[in-house]
């Protein structure tokens, strides 16, 4: 769905503050997602219009469950991001990993982004498709919070990517013009808390799945620790698939990545505040990158993706 089509939809919805689609209509839409139903969105925020800048597609708000982080208060994180020249940051929520009241998680996320990061923080809501009535969480992301994307954590939510519910969620997200982010890991599995161990998300089913969902825009977060080489190249080539650089490692790693992937599929992501923000930013300095490639990674690809 393009922006002018979104505008038309806004005009068709009388109350753009808290629209409530009839639940029966919503459920019908969910059931028919593979076929074409769409949740009307009310007033999508226009993406940033800066011609330059830095878009961080991978930050989280809230508290990491296992330790306090230096920037785990939204105002501090926003201040740090701004000080580094970040013009837009796509924010998920640490609470989305383990909380069951996802509706409250997403409401807090939207509120925090608005209160402390207006113009900077773009909320990406959590959806756990293993919870009953997850479609309502998705509907609220679209209709109530006017989110532009969602962030999924299949390993923390206990499903594999060949689960039919995942395909249904992707299809419904695509029909509602949401960017879908899938986080493959959150931290190094070797040092996880013994009571909170999860395997990296296995991506093998993804390439086949993507081909069957027209319009899907997919971003893989924290992917480059476990997804490499031919498997990475094939997955990115399978559709409108992007990766970000927060977990890529090795000297000159971003430059090496561009030997494998086209530059228009690589995004800037920091994984802050769990990671020091500076790590991602300095990776762009470590590799010799052409100015046009640097612009693409820093902001152009992300802006195009969210446009």
């Amino acid at each position: 769905m393009r922006e002018h089509e979104r505008v038309l939809e806004i005009q068709e919805v009388p109350d753009n503050r808290a629209p409530q689609l009839d639940r029966r209509v919503f459920l019908a839409g969910a059931a028919a997602a593979m076929g074409g139903a769409v949740f009307p969105s009310t007033a999508p925020a226009a993406p940033a219009r800066e011609e330059s800048g830095l878009v961080d597609v991978n930050v989280n708000l809230g508290r990491w469950p296992l330790r306090r982080l230096p920037h785990d208060q939204t105002e501090l994180l926003a201040s740090t991001l701004r000080s580094h020249g970040v013009t837009q940051a796509w924010a998920g929520s640490f609470d989305g990993l383990l909380h069951k009241d996802i509706a409250a998680v997403n409401a807090r996320l939207a509120d925090e982004c608005q209160r402390h990061g207006a113009g900077l923080l773009v909320p990406f809501g959590s959806v756990n498709p293993k919870l009953p009535d997850w479609e309502e969480d998705l509907r609220r992301c679209v209709q109530i919070h006017r989110m532009r994307g969602i962030r999924l954590h299949p390993n923390y939510h206990g499903y594999q990517l060949d689960d039919p519910v995942f395909a249904r969620l992707l299809a419904l997200a695509a029909k509602n013009d949401l960017v879908v982010q899938v986080a493959l890991v959150m931290e190094d599995e070797r040092m996880m808390h013994p009571l909170l161990r999860v395997e990296p998300v296995a991506t093998e089913p993804l390439a086949g799945l993507i081909k069957g969902i027209p319009g899907l825009r997919l971003t893989l977060l924290n992917a480059l620790r476990t997804l490499r080489g031919d498997a990475l190249g094939k997955l990115v080539a399978a559709g409108d698939v992007y990766v970000e650089i927060s977990m890529i490692e090795g000297v000159g790693a971003v430059g090496c990545l561009l030997d494998l992937l086209p530059a228009d599929r690589v995004l800037f992501g920091s994984h802050a505040p769990l990671f020091y923000f500076e790590a991602a930013k300095m990776k762009l300095e470590e590799s010799p990158l052409k100015p046009e490639v640097l612009r693409a990674i820093r902001h152009q690809n992300a802006k195009r993706l969210l446009a």
Partner: peptide, 18 residues
């Protein structure tokens, strides 16, 4: 731990620390 690790990611531990 270069070359397995990025100089950048490891320097960030120092340059990004409070």
């Amino acid at each position: 731990d270069a070359g397995g690790r990025s100089f950048a990611s490891q320097l960030a531990k120092v340059l990004g620390a409070a």
